[in-house]
Amino acid sequence: MTGRLTLPDTASIANQTEGGKLVAPSASRNLEPIAALLAKEAPSRGRALEIASGTGQHVAAFAARLPGLHWQPSDPDPVRRASIDAYATESGLSNIAAALDLDAAAPGWGARLAGQNLILLVNLLHLIPMDWVKVLIAEAAHALAPGGRFILYGPFLRDGSLTSDGDRAFHASLIAQDPRIGYKEIADILALLRAAGLSVIDLQEMPANNLAVVAERPAF
């Protein structure tokens, strides 16, 4: 992204282990639910781009469970890219590319990375300004191949409301740090997806009050 947040204390912390690998507690907790979601909703073969791969815990696990997809992890942070590559090397899998330095809020990457059968984005939209979200969604739509799917996972406002005290506290702490960020209204995200030419084909409740959105580029 075009700036890096210092996350508040309520955010998950990524701890470094030997070999440069990072471990984020939130990534450990949500890996299984997201893996089950992908098993149901992701294409079985093709190219898969993960935006903001973070520690790399997810992409290594997903590449093992969905071997027909060739995974391209990405992150703008060089420390996290090193962690991603460490997980990929440890896995021994041949369907994970080296982590890409990608600013997904910068215009133009959709054309450079065109032809994706799957784009995955986990727990990012509440950490970036809405102007960045708009660019990210438009570029992701441009990068998808016909019939490709864009899967988003994370916490959202629902008709302006949050469903737990923990979410309310985290949302407030984000806005206190930067009034441009915080939880996004799910209806606004669905509208942006549709405006980008995507069809919203599923909206699923996920653990810890999260939502998963599955959108698809029409296969003309």
Rank of each mutant, 00 (worst) to 15 (best):
M1Y: 08
T2Q: 13
G3L: 13
L7A: 07
L7N: 06
L7Q: 12
T10A: 04
S12V: 10
I13P: 11
A14H: 02
T17Y: 00
G19N: 05
L22A: 05
S26M: 05
E32C: 00
L38N: 03
A42P: 02
R45G: 06
G46R: 03
L49S: 04
L49E: 07
L49H: 01
E50T: 02
I51L: 15
A52D: 08
A52L: 02
G54I: 12
G56L: 08
G56W: 07
G56H: 06
Q57F: 09
V59C: 04
A61G: 04
A61R: 14
A61N: 05
L66M: 07
G68V: 03
L69T: 04
Q72P: 04
Q72F: 08
Y87C: 04
T89I: 05
S91V: 09
N95S: 09
A98V: 13
L100F: 11
D101Y: 04
D101H: 03
D103K: 06
P107L: 05
G108L: 11
W109P: 00
A111V: 13
A111D: 14
Q116A: 12
L118C: 04
L120Y: 05
L120V: 12
L121T: 05
V122P: 00
N123V: 07
H126S: 11
I128C: 09
V135H: 00
V135S: 02
L136A: 15
I137Q: 05
E139S: 12
H142E: 15
L144D: 01
A145L: 05
R149H: 12
F156R: 08
D159T: 12
D159V: 03
S164H: 10
S164K: 06
S164P: 09
D167I: 10
D167N: 15
R168L: 09
A176V: 00
Q177T: 10
Q177L: 14
K184I: 06
E185L: 08
D188K: 02
I189T: 09
R194T: 15
V200A: 12
I201S: 10
P207N: 02
N210M: 12
L211C: 07
L211T: 15
P218H: 12
